[in-house]
């Protein structure tokens, strides 16, 4: 009898996962035998140099991309060989995603983009969910932009709409790929506070990729990635400590 992901206190987990792109000479190893878990109800930051495999790790964990070998669990579901349809339903009901770029459906306005996960499930938000969405929209400062279409929004506004969408259905698990990358420090802080609250108040598990030590200092736990491997792992740290680790990592490369 193996111990389950839930019993480990994890919301998602990969074991021995590798991911190569291309073949032969030009092949790139984006993930190299990675085993790691995202703790349930915690805010996890993933850091690492550009090209170290952060986005790839999130895609594989969310079932958006397949791994070459190893296993992937979301909750207690082994999604490694899950049929596409089941995988899709799992994404729809249990996972929220904020991509690094191209987050919004260009033909839909901001409000419809936020409500898209409900639409996909063929239902409308109930009273409680509507109230939650309203508060999200207000906190994120996009209340007066709801009728605009993506090309009419700034990069940071698009990102905030995507965050609202990822949190709207209160999924168990939220992946956010540099959600504060396009934001000024004040809006960035608001987004980070929002994510922290989502964890503490609603027990959601959140994984966030960031290059910013200040952003990472909001997290309960920080994973460091380099060349497709997990090279370090810390509990909550100050921005200074995080910077020091990053600098040390760069020095040893």
């Amino acid at each position: 009898m193996t111990i389950t992901t839930t019993e480990m206190g994890l919301a998602a987990r990969v074991a021995g996962v590798s991911r190569r792109f291309g073949v032969g000479h030009g092949a790139v190893v984006a993930l190299d035998d990675v085993s790691v878990g995202i703790r349930r109800g915690q805010f996890t930051a993933i850091m690492g140099p550009s090209g170290s495999g952060k986005s790839t790790l999130m895609h594989v964990m969310a079932g958006l991309d397949s791994s070459d070998n190893g296993s992937v669990w979301v909750g207690d579901t082994d999604i490694t060989r899950l049929p596409d349809r089941d995988l899709t339903l799992l994404r729809r009901r249990r996972i929220g995603f904020v991509f690094q770029s191209f987050n919004l459906v260009p033909t839909l306005d901001a409000r419809s983009n936020i409500l898209l996960p409900f639409d996909l499930d063929g239902r409308k938000p109930n009273v409680d969910e509507s109230r939650w969405i309203d508060s999200l929209v207000t906190t994120l400062g996009i209340a007066d932009r709801l009728t605009h279409r993506p090309h009419e929004l700034s990069g940071g506004q698009q990102q905030r709409v995507a965050i609202a969408r990822a949190l709207a259905t209160r999924p168990d698990l939220v992946f956010a790929d540099e959600p504060t990358g396009n934001l000024d420090s004040r809006s960035g802080r608001e987004v980070l506070t929002l994510l922290t609250e989502a964890c503490s108040r609603f027990g959601q598990s959140i994984a966030m990729v960031t290059h910013d030590p200040v952003a990472a200092s909001y997290a309960d736990r920080i994973l460091f990635l380099a060349d497709g491997r997990i090279v370090d792992e810390r509990e909550r740290s100050t921005p200074e400590q995080i910077s020091a680790i990053m600098l040390a990592m760069e020095a040893t490369r």
Binding site: L64, T88, L89, R91, R92, F97, N103, V105, L120
Partner: peptide, 8 residues
Amino acid sequence: LLRALGFT
């Protein structure tokens, strides 16, 4: 994107 968000 639609598929990523849960369109089969």
